[in-house]
Amino acid sequence: MSEILTPAQVGAAGLADWRQLFHALQTRYATGDFATGLALLTEIGRAAEEADHHPDLDLRYGHLNVRLYSHDAGGVTRRDLRLAQRISELAAARGVVAVPQLLSAAEVALDTPDRARVEPFWRAVLAEPQPHEGEVRDDSGDLPRLWFQASGSEEPRQRFHLDVMVPSDQARARIEAALAAGGVLVDDGMAPTFTVLADPDGNRVCVCTMEGRDG
């Protein structure tokens, strides 16, 4: 049960309410008001206690965000699939609709020719409690992920850029909206895994999906 599933395995589970973004399963429920969201959150809490497996819950007026992954494994496991299905059942019983198309998650990418040289500094300054290979990650979700992207030593280069992870079925619309807003397509050779765009000043961003990734 602690085996980390690949994005393809997660997708094959057919969880219509859920999308994998980075290392976690996520969904958003359109509760419409705070009281409905609080009631659903309470039911999810009971189910989590019964399963001895606990999601991250973020209640706002009008919606409830749910994030699921196995902290001991560092990714999505079959425990998460089971609890996700149970949460979907609880939401459906209340008539609460999932809106996973509204999901996105961002990480900060640092271009560096020598990750080993700079990584210890960022782990220290961000006070990462538990190291993760190749990235600095706050599993509480309070801080964005910091990922180290290998680059050459040539100058100039954009040292930081954002990676915006979106559901696979939303990537094309997000890219088209960015282009319509004045953006420029830089590189789509690795699409749909990631597509590189730039704003009118040349600042780059990657629109990413989990499609084509091993984990």
Rank of each mutant, 00 (worst) to 15 (best):
D17R: 00
C206Y: 07
L83W: 00
F34T: 02
L83H: 00
Q101G: 15
P113F: 08
R117S: 07
S104A: 13
S168L: 15
V10R: 00
P7S: 03
A180I: 05
G202H: 02
R86T: 15
D58I: 02
S140W: 09
A84T: 04
Q149R: 12
A116E: 09
G202T: 01
R172M: 13
Q20G: 03
G74T: 02
V186I: 15
E135H: 05
A177E: 14
R157E: 10
G189Q: 13
G183L: 12
G134A: 04
A84N: 03
R19D: 01
R213K: 14
R82V: 11
R137P: 00
L64Y: 05
F121C: 09
S70R: 05
A127K: 12
V108W: 14
N203F: 10
G183M: 13
G11V: 00
A84D: 04
R172E: 15
A181F: 06
A16V: 15
Q130S: 09
R79A: 02
S2D: 12
D139S: 07
G215K: 01
L15Y: 01
S104Y: 14
A171T: 07
R19Q: 03
E49I: 04
T77S: 08
T31A: 04
G45D: 03
L57K: 02
A180F: 02
R159I: 13
L5F: 01
H161I: 12
E128G: 02
V118H: 05
E50P: 03
T36H: 01
F34A: 07
A12R: 01
M210I: 06
A181Y: 09
D72K: 03
V66M: 01
Q158W: 07
M165V: 14
V166I: 12
T77N: 07
A124T: 09
G11S: 06
D169V: 05
M210V: 10
D201E: 13
V207Y: 02
A173H: 09
T193P: 08
G62E: 04
T112Y: 08
A105N: 06
L57N: 01
F160A: 15
G32V: 11
V196D: 04
D169H: 12
H132W: 07
P113S: 08
A181S: 15
R94K: 14
D139T: 10
G182Q: 14
A116N: 02
Q20A: 10
A35T: 11
D142R: 14
R67T: 08
Q20C: 11
E128T: 03
Y69M: 08
M190R: 15
R145H: 07
F121K: 02
A180K: 10
R159C: 09
R78Y: 00
E211S: 03
E155H: 12
G45S: 03
G215C: 03
G182P: 15
F121V: 11
N203P: 03
W147T: 15
E154N: 14
A92V: 06
L64H: 05
D199P: 03
E107R: 07
F34D: 04
A48N: 00
A47L: 13
L103Y: 09
G95L: 04
R137V: 12
T112A: 11
D111A: 14
A109P: 02
E50I: 06
T42L: 11
W147P: 04
L25D: 00
Q101E: 15
G45R: 04
T27K: 08
F22P: 00
Y29D: 08
I87M: 09
V66N: 01
T31M: 06
